[in-house]
């Protein structure tokens, strides 16, 4: 199960300068994703987030320890969905469309 549902949020904040300074470091969205994930898992050391560029934003690929998968996905994907919402909000602040992929 790689991606539970998709987040095709169109660019929420049409502040078109994200590609000027954003590079592919994931910026705020990535640090929010890291922060939230650290709070949820038992093994924060195993968290890994890779950033890649997509057509109109970035994709953050999240990896956690096998035993922590359930914690970041949650029942019926509820935690994963919440993580996506919050990370998307973080991206929106910078005008970046962010997609979070939980990789297993």
């Amino acid at each position: 199960m790689s991606s539970l549902g998709e987040d095709h949020a169109d660019r929420v904040d049409a502040d078109d300068d994200w590609d000027d300074h954003g590079e592919v470091d994931g910026g705020r969205a990535k640090s929010v994703l890291l922060f939230v994930t650290r709070q949820l898992v038992d093994d924060p050391g195993a968290i890994q987030v890779d950033t890649s560029e997509t057509r109109n934003g970035i994709k953050l690929s999240l990896r956690v320890a096998a035993g922590d998968m359930g914690k970041v996905i949650g029942r019926r994907g509820r935690v994963a969905q919440s993580i996506r919402s919050v990370v998307r909000a973080a991206g929106a602040k910078d005008g970046v469309d962010v997609l979070v992929d939980i990789v297993d």
Partner: peptide
């Protein structure tokens, strides 16, 4: 589009 798009998620 912004609102509608975001709502989709």
């Amino acid at each position: 589009a912004a609102a509608a798009g975001a709502a989709a998620g």
